[in-house]
């Protein structure tokens, strides 16, 4: 039985008809056309689908679209401002924190959530926080560097 889901996506009101079993990530990618959020494992392990719902990071492959009704949703497309990369995005580019780039949107959304509660994390805290985000290319070294660098920039 289709139902209408409405929420705020990157500051804009959106809505779509979904079935009860439509996953939030599928609604965002296939119905709303925002394909920056990726589906890697589809089993809540890899973190490629991490987005923010009501201010915290979640795995959008393990949430029903219906659960997001009325929520404030932010995806990787909502992070840059006025055509300028967000400091976290700029740091990933600067420090070569990606190779194939598939995990990057999830890495960035997850790292941004860390800095909301811990603006000055240690290297260990960054590594521990990112345990729900898998990268099969980089070996994580430059990802951690990028997050620490972005944290420093964002602290000003």
């Amino acid at each position: 039985m289709p139902s209408t889901v409405s929420f705020t996506l990157n500051g804009e009101p959106v809505s779509a008809e979904v079935s009860s079993r439509t996953l939030l990530v599928d609604m965002i990618r296939e119905q709303l056309g925002r394909t920056g959020t990726h589906v890697g494992c589809d089993t809540s392990q890899c973190g490629a689908c991490v987005i923010h719902v009501d201010g915290v990071s979640v795995k959008s492959c393990t949430m029903l679209a219906l659960q997001a009704d009325g929520a404030d949703v932010v995806t990787i497309e909502g992070v840059a401002r006025n055509g300028e990369l967000h400091p976290m995005q700029a740091a990933f580019r600067e420090h070569h924190g990606l190779q194939c780039g598939f995990c990057t949107p999830g890495m960035i959304m997850s790292a941004l959530d860390l800095l909301q509660t811990n603006p000055d994390p240690s290297e260990g805290e960054v590594r521990e926080w990112l345990e729900g985000n898998l990268c099969r290319c980089t070996g994580y070294q430059n990802i951690v560097k990028a997050v620490l660098s972005a944290a420093a920039t964002m602290r000003g």
Binding site: V50, S57, V58, S110, D113, G132
Partner: peptide, 9 residues
């Protein structure tokens, strides 16, 4: 428990 995103939900 789990990872950060699991703990958020």
């Amino acid at each position: 428990i789990g990872d950060a995103q699991v703990r958020n939900r």
